[in-house]
Every structure is written in C-alpha cells, then in structure tokens.
Design a protein around this nucleic acid. Structure first.
Lengths: 198, 198
DNA sequence: GGGTACATGTAATCAGTTACATGATTTA
DNA sequence: TAAATCATGTAACTGATTACATGTACCC
C-alpha cells in the first residue's frame, strides 16, 4: 500500500463520485473539471486503471464481445485509500509550470550583451506580455463558461477550485498588464517611480 | 531540430547566462531562482545534458583524470535554439499542480453520503484549509528570503518572476482563509450571505 | 454507402524520479 | 584521522506522452 501517484487519486476520486465509468468517460469528466489544473492524456487512464486494478483498488470489468471495452468501479479498499489520502497532510508542494513566465525569466539570456541590449530585451518582453494577456484572458473565459455547468454549484468544493482557477488567471492578467505598462521597471521593481530620467 | 522539452530550455537558458557550468552548479542556480516554479532533480540534468550534447546544442567537456567531472557550455546552435524558443508564441498552457486544491475538490468523494455527510466534509475542509495556510505562508517566507539575493535585482525579469511567485502564494493564502472563514459557503458561492438560517 | 465524429485501446518511446555509490574537502 | 558536508555520477524504474489502429453510430 505504498502511496500512489496523484493521477491515481484523480481516478479514485472520480470513481468514488460516479460509482462506475469507462476511461473515456473519466477523460470527459476531467476535462470538465480538474483538467485545468491537473491534466493528462486519456491514454494514461488505461495505464492507471491497470495499476489500480492490480492493487485491488478498483475493478475492471472487461467486455470482449465484439468491441473491447472496460468499465471501472472503485472497491472498498479503493475508498479507504482515497480517504486516507484526503486526510493526509499535504505532501508535495504545489508546482506551477508556466512557459510564459519561464520565457520572461530567460529573456536577457536570449539577447547578445552590449549595444542596445536592453532595448531589444524590452521589445521582446512587450511582445511576450501581449501574448500572455491574450492567452490568460482566453482561459479565463473558458473558466467562466464552466461556471455555468450545473455540477459546479456555487459553494461546493468543485466550484471553489474553479473559482481559484479564475482568480489565478486574473492574477496573471494583472501581472502581465503591469509588465506591459512599464517594461523597463518590471513588477517587483522600485515601489513606483516611473522610468528613470523623469 | 524538433522542439525540446522545457527542461532543456532551462539548461540552455542558464548556460547562456553563465557561459560554463557543471550540472551541479546548474542545480544550485535552479534552486535559487526558477526552481520554485519549475524544478526537477539534479539527476535529470545529466540526462538533459546528454541529449543536448548529442544534438550539438551544448558541448560537454569531460575530465576523466582522477575524478569524473563534466563542464557544460552552450554552442552557437544552442543559442540560436534558445532564442527561437524565447520568440515562439507560447505553446503549452500553464499547468498548476496543487495537491491541496485537488484534495479540496475531492473532499465530498471521500465521505459516505447520508447522515451528517456535510458536517464531516466541512470539518475535513477546515483542517485542510489550516494546513494549506501554514504551507503557503512558509513558502512565501522562503520567497521573501530569495528577494534578498543580489542577483534578484528589482525590476529584472528574474525578480519579476519571483514577485509573481509571491503574489501567487498570497492569493492562495487569501483563498484558504476565506475557506476557513466560511467553510459551508466556499469561495465562488453566493455573493455574500452569511451561513443560512441567519 | 461514404464521410464524419465519437469511442476505444495498445505499443513504443521519452521524460522524470528514486536509490544508490563514491570522491573530495573541510572541520572538530 | 574520523565525521560531516559538498560534489559527482549512474542504473533501474516508473510515469507520461505520442503515434497509431480500429470499431461503432449517425447524418447526408
């Protein structure tokens, strides 16, 4: 009963809610909810299901007549494992993988030092900021959409995590807008002071 | 010249800044800067270096006398590849892997339906929120520390991405505090309204 | 009945992690 | 000089992704 990768708990959690589902259906569910902040390709669900079944945490009900197909259901052992995980004080710290921010971080590395180095860096940063604002605004809109899904009832945990996603997107939008507004004095710079020479 | 995994660009980016470094030194650099939002174990750097070297994007300078050791340096081709990536409009969307939020999401799944179902869920959520606040406050303090590192000069891209990290932690702290304050009407619930029956 | 979208699965590959092993350098 | 710490690397394994292959249902 070593502890499982987190994707396994996603599967267990969904099956605990659903009683029964095919990997395909799980994939749908993930897209509609947690997929925003924790996703993986559908094919992984097959591997995950295999592992969980081998450990007796779910049962795979395979049909071989005509078309291959498997239905998954959680077992009591699976429920216990899930509950234990839900009660375990958080293990891994959150990780944010944001290619946009990484690009920002490395902008200076991409330009030759000397001459109007900082001018070209600034220009690149402005472009990047514009893109990022668009990207995050698009994502925010997607989240808003999901808000309307009836399973996302206000006040529920599902809805709260969606809410957090939206706040996160808004945070990013604000951040990149600041970048756009003063690309030579990025956020975290001097308290205010407009660009030097003013 | 297919495109590389992002960890490869981390290595290229650092080498572009440093001219030369051992995998161990890269590991140190990562811890001090981007490691917060994009990390991997040191051992991966060896694999990454191997791949990059095979593609001619860096050169590995191996010393075999006495102790094995390798020094890495970026090549011109590596610089070009890095620059191309820096200019490429963002590919993958940001992903946030936060086990705390995932736990919140799945709380209801961990409790038996019926009887005082919601009471026990609420209790679990309160505990979770307390933990999360502590965790994120600890992380925020770590970020603040890093702020003092001289390479994190205010206004620079490096510093800005750190700033974003701090804002992110603060966002999480605020979120979980709201959860703690009204665990039966989680964020994203009705506009305000204190608990029912008031 | 031919096209399109939905549904299902496997195999091969690649990335990421854990666990281990050991060499050099400082310090008590 | 023994212990502690810093530095270095590999091998084995597990997880995650890509690419492919095919079946079923509906729709025009």
């Amino acid at each position: 009963m070593a502890d499982l990768p987190i994707s396994a708990y996603v599967v267990l959690g969904l099956l605990a809610e659903q009683e029964e589902a095919t990997p395909y259906q799980l994939d749908q569910l993930i897209r509609r909810s947690i997929g925003n902040f924790w996703s993986f390709p559908r094919s992984q669900l097959y591997a995950e299901a295999g592992r969980l079944a081998r450990q007796g945490l779910i049962i795979e009900h395979r049909e071989e007549n005509g078309r291959r197909r498997r239905t998954l259901a959680i077992t009591d052992a699976g429920r216990r494992q899930l509950r234990r995980w839900l009660e375990t004080p958080t293990d891994a710290p959150a990780e944010v993988h944001d290619p946009g921010v990484l690009r920002l971080h490395f902008q200076p590395a991409g330009h030759d030092r000397g001459e109007d180095h900082s001018a070209s860096v600034t220009q690149a940063i402005v472009r990047l900021a514009g893109e990022q604002i668009a990207t995050h605004e698009r994502l925010l809109a997607v989240y808003r959409q999901k808000t309307e899904n009836p399973t996302m009832r206000p006040g529920t945990p599902q809805r709260a995590s969606l809410e957090l996603g939206m706040r996160y997107e808004q945070l990013l939008i604000d951040f990149w807008k600041e970048v756009l507004d003063s690309p030579t004095n990025l956020p975290g710079g001097a308290p205010d002071g407009p660009d030097p020479a003013t």
